[in-house]
Computed example of a mutant assay.
Amino acid sequence: MPIRIPDHLPAAKTLQSEGVMVMDSSRAARQDIRPLQIGLLNLMPNKERTETQFARLIGATPLQVDLTLVRVSDHKSKNTSEEYLKSFYSTWEEVRERKFDGFVVTGAPVANMPFEEVKYWSEMLEIMDWTETNVHHTMFICWGAQAALHHFHGARRYRMPSKAFGVFRHKLVGPQTPWLHGFSDSPMIPVSRYNDIDRTSLGENLEVLIDNDDIGVCMLEDKVRPALYMLNHLEYDNRSLADEYERDVKAGLDTPPPVNLFPHGDTTVEPENRWRSHAHLLFQNWINEIYQTTPYELERIGLRD
Rank of each mutant, 00 (worst) to 15 (best):
L67D: 10
P263H: 04
G144R: 02
P256M: 15
D198Y: 03
T106E: 15
E126N: 11
S240E: 03
F152C: 13
R34W: 09
H278A: 00
R157M: 10
T200Y: 02
K250C: 03
D24E: 12
K86S: 10
P2V: 07
Y245I: 05
Q146D: 09
H75C: 02
S201R: 04
A60Y: 12
E123T: 05
L41I: 00
R96S: 11
T106L: 05
S277K: 09
A147R: 05
T293Q: 13
A11Q: 09
Q284W: 04
S186W: 11
L209K: 02
E123R: 15
F140K: 01
D254A: 13
K86W: 00
E221F: 00
G39S: 11
F183P: 01
N195R: 10
L228Y: 12
I290E: 01
K171G: 07
K223C: 09
T138A: 13
L67S: 05
E289H: 14
H8R: 15
H137N: 14
K223M: 11
H233E: 08
A242L: 02
A227N: 06
P2S: 11
E51T: 15
N46L: 10
L9P: 04
P226H: 03
Y296G: 02
F283K: 07
L234C: 05
H151C: 10
P187N: 08
L228P: 00
H181M: 11
W275H: 12
N288H: 12
R276G: 02
G154L: 15
N205R: 12
A145R: 08
V249C: 06
T294F: 10
A111V: 12
Q64L: 11
G203V: 07
T52G: 12
Y84E: 06
F183C: 02
P175T: 08
R193E: 00
L9E: 00
Y229C: 04
E270L: 10
A147T: 10
N79V: 07
P161L: 08
F54H: 02
